[in-house]
């Protein structure tokens, strides 16, 4: 008999003795799955960091005897949706044990787990997370579309530029590199979020967890001010995205009409890339957001990637066409950042 165990894990519970054995089972299974896709195992600090997410983590696994046959891990995020704060779940890791049986039995546990995971964590707001999303690997993609009832929201792009090829000017914009996000970022987010259909909440606690406390990636943060008022920020890291090696703009919060602010932060990011020995910046934002055109307007070029952003909605009217048109996101809203 297969026993199907599901567990939610909040930040407070994350490091309790009760949660450890179950989490260790999930971790081991996920690492096996990642190895099958040619990916590195997640580190112990990485798991601790993930579990410290202010919005919590959802995990589920299907186990027969002592063997984990399937696992799903999701990270919760607070989102501003049509002016209301709701929970979303980013599906970050999935595992299916392909050695456990033949034919349909190979994915039976995974299918059952996905259905149970959706029942437990998904649903209409405020009780459930009304959107699941993720950027699956090619291997996971087909299973998630079939078993998690995911849909493709967008075939993703990369925005790329060689900073030396353009001249940016930012009169009146003060850019300051900081070690952590200040509390006043919350007010800037409120102004940024005005008029947007969907955007994940950006406040000091969440941003500092996402970027400052990250155990594997060294992010640099810059704030932009005009007349002393905080009007935007950028998060930079050295690395690559979609095969473009250089400086990655992992997160970006500047209203698209604020061209001077945009250029001020890009000047900073270009300098950061140069100090890392690169003349390349790469990023991505939703291609229906004003920012997508704004980046092109200051010289970025659009490239293809092999990524699909997938989602599952549990609440109308937040179906594909709505989310496609109204959800502003950056690389930092997923592990790509």
């Amino acid at each position: 008999m297969r026993s199907l165990d599901l567990q939610t894990i909040s930040p407070a519970e994350a490091n309790t003795a009760a949660a450890r054995p179950e989490l260790d089972s999930v971790r081991q299974a996920i690492d096996v799955g990642r190895a099958g896709s040619g990916l590195r195992a997640r580190s112990e600090p990485y798991w601790r960091w993930r579990l410290a997410n202010p919005d919590g983590v959802c995990a589920g696994f299907a186990r027969q005897a002592d063997r984990v046959q399937a696992a799903v891990v999701g990270v919760r995020h607070r989102a501003r949706l049509d002016g209301e704060d709701v929970d979303w779940v980013e599906v970050v890791d999935t595992f299916n044990d392909f050695d456990a049986g033949r034919g349909l039995a190979r994915t039976g546990a995974y299918s059952a787990l996905c259905a149970e995971f959706a029942r437990a964590f998904g649903g209409r707001a405020p009780e459930g997370a009304n959107v699941f999303y993720g950027v699956p690997t090619r291997r996971a993609h087909r299973f998630e579309l079939a078993r998690l009832r995911s849909e493709i929201l967008r075939s993703e792009n990369a925005l790329v530029i060689a900073p030396s090829s353009v001249t940016w000017v930012a009169p009146g914009v003060e850019v300051e590199e900081v070690d952590a996000f200040p509390d006043e970022i919350g007010g800037a987010f409120e102004r940024f979020a005005e008029g947007r259909g969907a955007v994940q909440v950006r406040d000091a606690a969440r941003l500092n967890w996402r970027f400052t406390a990250h155990p594997d990636r060294a992010y640099r943060i810059a704030l932009a001010r005009v007349g002393g008022e905080l009007v935007g920020y950028a998060v930079y890291r050295r690395g690559s995205y979609a095969g473009h090696e250089g400086g990655v703009l992992a997160d970006w919060m500047v209203r698209p009409e604020e061209r001077d602010v945009m250029q001020g932060l890009l000047l900073w990011a270009g300098d950061a890339a140069r100090s890392d020995g690169h003349d390349l910046l790469v990023t991505n934002v939703a291609n229906r957001a004003g920012e997508f055109g704004a980046f092109q307007g200051v010289g970025f070029r659009v490239h293809g990637t092999d990524e699909y952003l997938t989602f599952r909605s549990f609440q109308k009217p937040y179906i594909m066409s709505w989310l496609f048109a109204h959800w502003y996101y950056t690389l930092g809203d997923s592990e790509r950042g």
């Binding site: 967008r154 792009n157 939703a286 291609n287 229906r288 997508f292 055109g293 092109q296 307007g297 070029r301 659009v302 496609f324």
Partner: peptide, 9 residues
């Protein structure tokens, strides 16, 4: 794009 076209979703 180099010739001035902008990409739109």
């Amino acid at each position: 794009q180099e010739w001035g076209w902008v990409v739109y979703g």
